[in-house]
Structures are given as structure tokens and as C-alpha cells.
């Protein structure tokens, strides 16, 4: 089951929250959905779930609009807002009405409570007394209740302790490994490093990037190579002849863009120019993200930002 988003547009008054958002989330992978606060992540997810109506475009789950699914909770499990629990209701009762809504048997309650680590006393307490992390786990339990083919989690790491973060990463990986479609949003790229297979980057209501993690990293690092040489002038001539752009950053240090490290080594070796300490500068996911969303962040600092 895929999530297909095509040309979504949405305005809140004067503010354009989504401006032609299109992407596809495939099964078997963890897809990260990242962007600064207010970029349109939650709005997109709300439209996919039929909570908000799009002004244009459409969002389909398994080829159908969410609101026309026959058995929505068995198809899609979602957690948009972990705080969305009535404080007067016990955690277990919160899951119970959802189970009734989906026609699920009561044993699923114990199964998911066990799975998210809320089995025992916690589930019998009223949700008003839960910590943010417990609410988060309860929200995830609700999403898992219908054993869905598609999972959509909005900022699931928020409020979890380090142990919880490790747990949820493992959970997401294993869900994807079972062939499910997993979409996880975050405003911090670091949270998704090592978890996500693909990334959809959104900023200012537009998709900035939609690629696998290695592709993104490559694009961000841009093939920058740093090296030291005792003959900088010769090296610069050789490297620019080979197609690189060379900059001198010190007495004997150069950086080359437009050539990867192997090509640079080969060119220098062929011309017998001495060199040492060749290193390909590898960007972190965080840097790639900062570069991609720089414009969006500027927008975010301006007054009157829309809802996220």
C-alpha cells in the first residue's frame, strides 16, 4: 500500500500552507518527512487522513481517498498529536473505544500495550497523569492497534527518553521490514539519521527534495575534496585541466570541487605532482538538511508563520 500525494494545495486565510506538494511513500521503507516547524508536514498528514480538505490536488492511500476506505484502521495507523487524549480517561479505555470503532477484539489492547511498554499499571491510570513520553507511547499504541499496512507518525520522538528513542527506531525499522509503509515526520534531521531510508524534505509548503538518504548526502557534499601538496601551483593546473574547480585555502592546502577523490588522485598521479592527505569531505545529513531548508528557515523567522 502506497501513500500518494499529488499537487496538494491548502491556504489558511492569507497564509499558503501547502503549495503543490507531491510525493509517494512506498512500502517496505521508512520514509522521513522533514522540514522546519510550520513547513506543512502536519497539514499534509491531516489531509492524507481526511481531517482537513485540500484546496487542490489529492492524497490517496492504497489508491483511494482515506475517507472511502472500508476498514481505515486496518489500513492506516496514525498518530498526529500525542496530547490528543482526554485527561479523564484511562489509557486502556482510550484504546478500547478505538478498538470498538475498528471492530477489533479486546486482546489487541493487551498486545499493543505490551508492544509499546505500557502494559501493567500505567494503562489503568487516567491519561491526565501521563508524562509526555507515556502519551507518546499511548498514541503509538493507538496507531498500531489495527495492525495497519501503513503507518503515519507525526514527530514520534518528541518527549521520549534516549531509551525510548532507541526503541522507536527499532520499531520503525522492523515495521518497514515487515513490508509496511512507514511515514515519519520530524523537524530535526538528526532524529531520522540511521532510521529513514528515504527522505521527503518540505519547506514553505513545497517539496524541496525527495530522494534516498545516500543521494541526499551526495548532493549536499557536492564532491568536495581536500588535499595537501608541496607544489600547489602545479596541482591547481593539473586539477583544473581535469575538470575540477580548485581553491587555495592555505600555504599547501587546496579544495577541489567537481571531481571526486579518486579522479583527483588519478590526475595528480598521472602528472607526478606530489600530494598528501587526500580526504573526501562527507556531509552529515544535518548539514544537507540545513542547506536545503535555508530559505524555509528564513521564512520561518518572519512574523505570522502558518501552522505546521
Amino acid at each position: 500500500m502506497e501513500i500518494e500525494v499529488d499537487g496538494l494545495r491548502k491556504r489558511y486565510g492569507q497564509v499558503s500552507a501547502l503549495d503543490g506538494v507531491s510525493f509517494t511513500v512506498r512500502p517496505g521503507l521508512v520514509t522521513g518527512f522533514v522540514g522546519p516547524n510550520g513547513a506543512g508536514k502536519s497539514t499534509t498528514m491531516r489531509i492524507v487522513l481526511g481531517l482537513d480538505a485540500a484546496d487542490g490536488g489529492h492524497a490517496l492511500v492504497g489508491g483511494r481517498p482515506y475517507r472511502s476506505l472500508r476498514d481505515p484502521l486496518r489500513a492506516v495507523g496514525a498518530m498526529l498529536d500525542a496530547a490528543a487524549v482526554h485527561p479523564g480517561r484511562r489509557g486502556r479505555d482510550h484504546l478500547r473505544w478505538i478498538a470498538h470503532a475498528a471492530g477489533l477484539p479486546a486482546r489487541r489492547l493487551d498486545e499493543v500495550l505490551e508492544q509499546v511498554g505500557l502494559a501493567g499499571g500505567a494503562a489503568k491510570r487516567r491519561a491526565g497523569g501521563y508524562s509526555l513520553g507515556m502519551r507518546q507511547r499511548l498514541g503509538i499504541a493507538a496507531a498500531l492497534l489495527g495492525d495497519p499496512r501503513v503507518l503515519m507518525l507525526d514527530e514520534p520522538v518528541n518527549g521520549l527518553d534516549p531509551e525510548g528513542i532507541v526503541w522507536i527506531r527499532g520499531l520503525l525499522r522492523s515495521l518497514a521490514a515487515e513490508g509496511r509503509t512507514v511515514l515519519v515526520s520530524s523537524h530535526l534531521m538528526g532524529e531520522l539519521e540511521g532510521t529513514a531510508d528515504r527522505l521527503v524534505v518540505i519547506g514553505r509548503g513545497r517539496i524541496i527534495a525527495d530522494a534516498s538518504v545516500p543521494e541526499l548526502l551526495a548532493a549536499a557534499s557536492g564532491g568536495r575534496v581536500a588535499l595537501r601538496t608541496s607544489a600547489p601551483a602545479d596541482a591547481m593546473a593539473v586539477l583544473s585541466r581535469a575538470g575540477g574547480t580548485v581553491a587555495s585555502v592555505g600555504a599547501d592546502a587546496l579544495t577541489v570541487t567537481g571531481l571526486d577523490a579518486e579522479a583527483a588522485v588519478a590526475a595528480l598521479g598521472a602528472s607526478r605532482v606530489p600530494f598528501a592527505e587526500v580526504s573526501a569531505h562527507r556531509a552529515t545529513l544535518e548539514e544537507a538538511y540545513m542547506e536545503l531548508t535555508r530559505d524555509a528557515a528564513e521564512f520561518e523567522a518572519a512574523p505570522g508563520g502558518g501552522r505546521s
Binding site: D81, A83, G306, R307
Partner: peptide, 11 residues
């Protein structure tokens, strides 16, 4: 701020 990602007026 995180807790009240809700209506515009709240924000």
C-alpha cells in the same frame, strides 16, 4: 510552543 501547535490564536 510545541504543546500548543494548534490554532493560530494560540500560537
Amino acid at each position: 510552543n510545541v504543546g500548543t501547535e494548534g490554532t493560530e490564536s494560540n500560537a
